[in-house]
Amino acid sequence: MAAIELSGVKKTYPGGAQVIHGIDLAIADGEMVVLVGPSGCGKSTLLRMIAGLESITEGTISIGGAVVNKREPAERDIAMVFQNYALYPHMTVRGNLEYGLKNRGTPRDEIDARVNAAAQTLEIAPFLDRKPRQLSGGQRQRVAMGRAIVRQPKAFLFDEPLSNLDAKLRGQMRIEIRRLQRSLGTTSVYVTHDQLEAMTLADRLVVMNGGHIEQVGKPTELYDRPASLFVAGFIGSPPMNLIDVERIRALPGVSLPASLPAGTDIVGIRPDAVVMGKGAAGDIPLTGTVELIEPVGGESHLYVRVAGLEQIFVIVAQGRTTLTETGQVDFAVPVATLHPFNRASGRRL
């Protein structure tokens, strides 16, 4: 168990392509940090740099207070869970769990004790003598987790470990990973592109874009106060409506409050912040045509075309809706829920 510290970390490939542009991040002991971002944002590369599978061009990475830049992955005392599990296909489950311990020269009886304990925790004890190919996807995932646990490393690194599972299993394993990480209290770095996974697992969320960190914070913080247009558009599903201020001002009978900071030229509106109907006094009233309704069960997603706005406005309406497609809808946006952004800087104001 240890804190991980990244300072000024950069990565440039031999061809000259720079993929990581100076990352500073301190991960506290026992914390679960999730790196999230679109594909190609450098999150996996960063994780692999922490693991020691990619070299570090500039800056330092330290684990437990010691700089590990030049250390081999095995010497960093970390464990990694891979997207495709990377189980050794010719070894039994037990062999897979033992391999790392054997290489470290752990005594036989301790290996057995740790493997059995991990198998109990993950409920894979009945499969210990099977080969990975005889297991289902979920079971393989557990074995991959087990291989990380038995090592009792300073940190767990997860590289999109759930993306090969079906949606239901993914939900289950997500909860299990969270529970396991809490009970073990091991520092963890988790990479995913699935923002639901990111929101639910993270103590702190790191949103990355183009090799930079966009924002770091608690998941709810990021949801409530996205620091940039990118984070605003990335966190939340359905995504935030980002609307040109000029176009709103131009709508008949609509005025924006003077309380918006100077320089605001884009406002963000969360789909679930919208109030159906005329709204209270002071709210911004809007009217549009429903183009599409997605009933999700407890709520409905409405895709509404508002005359004068260029993009489709997305609304999350609680409960069942009586609206029909092509029908008219009145809704209102409470002023307090507006997120002001500046287009040029891309930052929140």
Binding site: A51, L53, P73, A74, I78, F82, N84, Y88, N103, R147
Partner: peptide, 22 residues
């Protein structure tokens, strides 16, 4: 798969061990 080699590296297997064991 590359991940197999990477997993072995994380598990502390050097080049000879990876060759022999995997």
């Amino acid at each position: 798969p590359d991940e197999l080699m990477e997993a072995a590296r994380v598990d502390g297997a050097g080049p000879i061990k990876f060759f022999r064991d995997i």
